[in-house]
Structures are given as C-alpha cells and as structure tokens.
Design a protein around this nucleic acid. Structure first.
Lengths: 152, 152
DNA sequence: CGGACTTTGACCTTTCCTGACCTTCATATA
DNA sequence: TATATGAAGGTCAGGAAAGGTCAAAGTCCG
C-alpha cells in the first residue's frame, strides 16, 4: 500500500497529464478533504515531490480565493539538466559557476542578455554574504535560475 | 471564477487600453455600483493593483465633481531605471519585487524567460536565508540583475 | 536500535471584502 | 460674502477564507 504522500503525488501527476496542460490548480483544503488528511500534508507532498529540482514550480496565494498552482517545466534537455544539477551541488564557487555559464553560452543555450543576468546574480559583490553561506546561496540560485531558463 | 478584485482590476486595465490613452477617469461610487460592492472595495483594488511599483499613478478629488484618475506611467528607460533603483532601496520584500517584475514585463522590457529567471532569483524559497538579511540580498540582486538587463 | 521519512495539529500570515465613520469640495442660499 | 449642505472620495478596523510553518509524534526499514 503506497503511502499517503505517494498517493497524493500520483494523483497530482495524473491530473497534470490528463489535463494535457502543464499547469494544475488546486485548493489545498479540498485536496486534503479528498484524501482525508490534514491540509499541511499537501504542503509536505509539494515540498518533497514537486521541487524545482524535479522539474516543477509551485505557486500559491492565501486568503479569499486562494489556490495552489503546480507547473510542470518542460525539460527538453533532461540529461543536460541532470548533469548541471550534479555539477552544481549544494555549494559552488563563483569561478565554477562562471565556467558553467560560459559553457552554456557556448552551447547557445544562453543568450548574451541572459548570461549577463545570471552573471550578476552569482557575483560575490552582489551577494555580499560571508563565505560558507555565499557559495550555498549561489548554488541554490544558479540551479533555480537555470531550471527556469532551460525548463521551457 | 476570478475574485472581485481581479474583475475590477481587469475592467480598469481594459478601459485604459481601449481608450488608447494613458489616463482613465472614473467615479468611485458608479464603479462600485456596477460591480455591486461597497465603494471602499475600489480603494482596495487601487491600493493593491495600481501602485507606482506596477507603473500606475492614482489621483483623486473628493466632494462635488469628485473623481478618481488612474494614470499609466510611460517613461523612457533611463527614467525607469532611476525609479527602480529608488524604489528598490537597500531592502525589498518578495511582493514588492514581484510587482516590479510585473510592471517591467507589462512594459515589454522583460520577456517571459527573463521574468522567470528573475523570479527564481528573488524567491524566498531559493534564497533560503532568514528575514532581515533575505530582503537585503534580494534588493542587491534585483538591482544588479536589472542593471545588467536594462543598463546595457 | 537508529535514522530517515511521514503524518498530524496547533498556531500564524496573507488576502479579500465590508461597513461605520471621517474629510473635502462645489454650490446654493441667506 | 459667509455659511450650510449634499455629494463625492478616504480611512480603518474587523471578519472570513484561504494557505504556511514548525515541531512533535508516528512508521518503516536496514
């Protein structure tokens, strides 16, 4: 018997596929009711199964007419992305990061404008945070930005 | 179904576009009647959706012949950049930053890819730093990225 | 047994919408 | 002219309806 988390994960992916779209909008409380669990269980599923790393974007709004939106990123370059994720890891230096950008630019996956933006975001002068932390923030940002870019 | 706020927001923007001008004048009470809501709802929409960050100016007059005037700001790049630098300051919330991105995207200064990248870089989920610092890092990154993008 | 993963629930924050009450202004009128 | 009046718009607090957070408790598996 699959765990609750897996059931919800499956159901959401099913909906995503069935709707033939890459966007799914749900109500947290309704979904929770459907699976007879607490609403925060939905957050757990989203946090562990629908991460940027796995190719999903999650947006939400609170309050009246609130919602949760799950967006499946189209990854036409899965192996490249996998490679990127691996080479970035949990922490990365500015030099390493710049090498990656260079490489991607050479491959034509990044235009000049885009490269400049990424470059700005990973620069130590702009991050201005002390060192163990800085490389970790840079890694997270770089991964998220590249996924946003390359995942359709 | 969109929220009342969204409906009113849409209607106003529609009018702005349709009139082919950058100025729209309305009567608060009439608009409220049209949408069957209290007049202060209109203020709510104006305060949250037609801010300077999003590129709008709102003027009004009370009393007899009172009115509300919505002006869509049209500025050239250097002006925009100056305004951006000022409004970002040394620290900025995710919401404010998103308003700016929305504004720039609407102006056509940011395409969808670019907007997604910037969005990723300012997201609290990706920054993952505690709060006073997070807003400061976001401000620095946003300024640097916009400069890289628009400053040429 | 111990660590990793799940599940739960109490409490928090954000967003939207309303209504009571306040301020301002053009104009009619004394 | 001075003032009264009614017709605007403005403010603010409160309530309801979402979703978010976090830590404790439970489960599973090596």
């Amino acid at each position: 018997m699959p765990s609750l988390t897996e059931q919800i994960e499956c159901w959401l992916k099913e909906q995503l596929i069935r709707s033939r779209e890459n966007i799914l909008e749900i109500k947290r409380s309704e979904l929770a009711q459907e699976f007879d669990c607490v609403p925060s269980q939905v957050n757990y599923v989203l946090e562990t199964r629908f991460t940027v790393e796995r190719g999903y974007l999650v947006q939400s709004r609170r309050g009246g007419r609130g919602f949760i939106r799950i967006i499946k990123l189209q990854m036409d370059l899965p192996e490249q992305l996998q490679l990127l994720r691996d080479s970035i890891g949990a922490s990365i230096s500015q030099g390493q990061a710049e090498n990656i950008l260079l490489h991607l630019a050479e491959e034509g996956l990044l235009n000049r404008r885009e490269k400049r933006v990424l470059q700005a975001a990973i620069s130590r002068d702009n991050l201005k945070v002390a060192l163990p932390l800085r490389d970790m923030i840079r890694a997270r940002l770089l991964k998220a930005m590249l996924l946003a870019l390359l995942g359709e």
